[in-house]
């Protein structure tokens, strides 16, 4: 644990250095204009990275599966679908007219309900059958994405604009009051996840062993899924879906932490997720001269990692 804690500090230091690089490197023009702009963007990157990393570790533990992530099984698509459904039912003006804070909390609560019901069922039915679980998860993800898209086609163009805001991974347009809410939800969910860490360690042994040790496994799965939903809502509401970021963050976090103990792997995945996004943004903004998008970069490397993990599992 001592070594693990030292690694966490090193990772935090790296994130700090990357953040400083992002804030101060190649600063041109009026500093008091550029710095706040960059700081807002940095906060969004860190929040999204941390939320995605924590959500992925939680999800992988209760799914007993290192390949699935909330993004792959369609948590974010479910969120977009719910948002679209809300606009369909209430009308775009009514939804856009809601106070941002209330709207976000309402949508988050809705996602938590829907996700625990849907994915709780998936885990109960396919527990122990890894291949079937991956297939069901991926198909579910595609289905939810399709449903979200279909619902959007039913919208009038003006109403569509209300939903569209939420759908594209973009760190360019983040509002500051949104950031405050997101930070609050992330802090609460992160603290709850850390409190659950010992129980998550036991749950990581698999449902049969965990139950034998007297852990109420169903309850842990339910709580973890609820936290995952809250965290996915944070990152999707801020910047839209980035499917493979979680896989990168969780895998890197585990390697860096060198342990499956959640007291280490949760913060390590959070820091890794944040570091990946900040480093990616530095590369894309300052080195590639905005010639691509960060989401594309992350999806590219995340997709490669996904393939590598699948192929390694085949052989092993």
């Amino acid at each position: 644990m001592a070594r693990g804690r030292a690694t966490l500090w090193a990772l935090a230091g790296l994130l700090g250095a990357l953040s400083a690089l992002f804030l101060f490197w190649q600063i041109r023009g009026p500093v008091d204009f550029v710095l706040p702009l960059r700081a807002t963007k940095l906060a969004a990157l860190v929040l999204v990275g941390a939320a995605t990393g924590i959500a992925t570790v939680l999800f992988q533990t209760v799914a007993a599966n290192r390949l699935l992530t909330p993004g792959i099984v369609g948590f974010d698509a479910l969120f977009v679908f719910l948002q679209t459904g809300l606009v369909l039912m209430l009308g775009g003006l009514a939804v856009a007219g809601l106070p941002a804070f209330a709207r976000f909390l309402g949508e988050t609560a809705l996602l938590m309900l829907a996700a625990t019901a849907l994915f709780g069922l998936l885990m109960r039915r396919d527990a122990g059958d890894v291949v079937r679980m991956i297939l069901t998860g991926v198909i579910l993800g595609v289905l939810l994405r399709g449903l979200a898209e279909m619902a959007q086609r039913l919208l009038a163009p003006s109403e569509y604009a209300v939903v569209q805001q939420a759908m594209f991974a973009s760190f360019g347009a983040v509002e500051r009051d949104q950031l405050a809410v997101a930070a609050l939800v992330l802090a609460l969910a992160g603290a709850a996840a850390l409190r659950m860490a010992p129980a998550l360690d036991v749950a990581g042994l698999g449902r049969p062993m965990a139950r034998g040790l007297g852990l109420d496994h169903d309850r842990v799965v339910f709580l973890a899924l609820a936290l995952v939903a809250a965290l996915v809502a944070v990152s999707t509401a801020l910047v839209g879906p980035i499917t493979f970021l979680g896989l990168l963050a969780a895998s890197l976090g585990r390697v860096v932490a060198g342990s499956d103990r959640h007291a280490l792997s949760l913060p390590a995945a959070a820091l890794s997720g944040a570091a990946i996004l900040v480093a990616g943004q530095v590369v894309f903004e300052r080195l590639l001269g905005m010639q691509s998008t960060l989401a594309v970069l992350v999806e590219f490397f995340g997709g490669l990692l996904f393939l590598a993990l699948v192929l390694r599992r085949r052989r092993g």
């Binding site: 010992p198 360690d201 042994l205 698999g206 062993m209 034998g212 040790l213 585990r254 342990s259 499956d260």
Partner: peptide, 27 residues
């Protein structure tokens, strides 16, 4: 139980320590 091989980076000491979970519940 007859469980499938646990492919985990847990150390033996950590695994055995899980046996104490019903007694301490995390602490």
């Amino acid at each position: 139980q007859q469980s499938p091989a646990l492919a985990s980076r847990l150390r033996v000491r950590e695994l055995v320590a899980f046996g104490r979970w019903p007694h301490h519940g995390g602490r």
